[in-house]
């Protein structure tokens, strides 16, 4: 059975159809990137995966069971901003993940458990390259380091799915490239299932194993909200390390050259 099963899924806000007739299976270990024009519902789709929104109709299963209708421990999330806790040190942020998970009443671990959690947190920080910054506060970190921390925070409790909402959108190109290496490395080493929304086409081809393009197939000018977006392309990517993108680029150049002639 697939990790995520989606059959004939619709999302509507009143008369406004955002998504229509989505059919999709996502297997464990896949790295899906979601692209599409703004307002095409890819963020809405991510919110449904996260539990912030619920589908209007259709089948929407996680591991064969309906998705929990509020954010839960199965799904980790990294937002573009604000996903780390500014009042805790870097180490404290990662510790908090384990503390919230394991201690329901105090939200704190003590004694031996705390020591173990601390060791685990340090290992996690090392693996995202934040070992040296463990005792700093998030406000002392650069944007890229804050995103590394946010990833570490989610991964340390091993969610079934890691959701990324334009996580590298606010970063400089050089740092973005570092983050790409990091997330690919973490994905391969830990056999994660990752679903990522992005605006950056290059990123969407380069990262991951599967590219999903959201777009409106039908459009009525008199009623722009009458039809929702669907998945228009579902392409395997990644293994070729961006080869497809180069191919697309080339053919596009050829076309424009022909046109010029």
């Amino acid at each position: 059975m697939s990790l995520i099963t989606i059959k004939n899924l619709w999302k509507e806000y009143g008369d406004n159809v955002v998504l229509e007739r989505l059919n999709l299976n996502i297997e464990e270990g896949e790295f899906c990137t979601l692209v599409g024009p703004s307002g095409c519902g890819k963020t809405t789709f991510l919110k449904m995966l996260l539990g912030q929104e619920t589908p209007t109709k259709g089948t929407f299963l996680l591991d064969g069971k309906p998705f929990p209708d509020e954010p839960s421990i199965e799904r980790g999330i990294v937002f573009q901003r604000y996903s780390v806790f500014e009042h805790l040190s870097v180490l404290g942020n990662v510790l908090l993940s384990m503390e919230l998970k394991e201690s329901k009443f105090f939200g704190r671990l003590f004694g031996k458990k705390r020591k173990e959690a601390k060791e685990k947190a340090m290992q996690m920080l090392e693996s995202v390259g934040l070992g040296d910054a463990a005792h700093k506060y998030p406000s002392e970190l650069s944007g890229g380091m804050q995103q590394r921390l946010s990833i570490a925070q989610s991964l340390v409790i091993k969610p079934k799915i890691l959701l990324l909402d334009e996580p590298f959108g606010a970063l400089d190109p050089g740092i973005r490239a570092d983050m790409h290496t990091l997330i690919l490395d973490l994905w391969k080493r830990n056999n994660l299932t990752v679903i990522m929304v992005t605006h950056d086409l290059h990123e969407s081809f380069y990262l991951g194993s599967r590219l999903l393009v959201f777009d409106k197939v039908r459009y009525d000018e008199q009623a722009p909200n009458a039809y929702g977006a669907r998945i228009t392309y579902d392409i395997p990517v990644g293994n070729e390390k961006g080869a497809i993108l180069t191919k697309v680029d080339k053919s596009r150049k050829k076309e424009t050259n022909n046109y010029d002639n």
Binding site: L50, Q52, E70, P71, S72, I73, R75, G76, I77, F79, R81, Y82, S83, F85, E86, H87, L88, L96, S97, E99, L100, K101, E102, S103, K104, F105, F106, G107, R108, S150, Q153, S154, I157, P159
Partner: peptide
């Protein structure tokens, strides 16, 4: 407090109560 923080804390397993004492109160 950004809504992102509350959602993040929920994905880490926080309950309403533990989010109050670990996320809201100290901030």
């Amino acid at each position: 407090i950004p809504a992102e923080q509350f959602i993040k804390a929920q994905t880490l397993g926080g309950s309403s109560w533990s989010i109050v004492i670990r996320v809201i109160l100290p901030q």
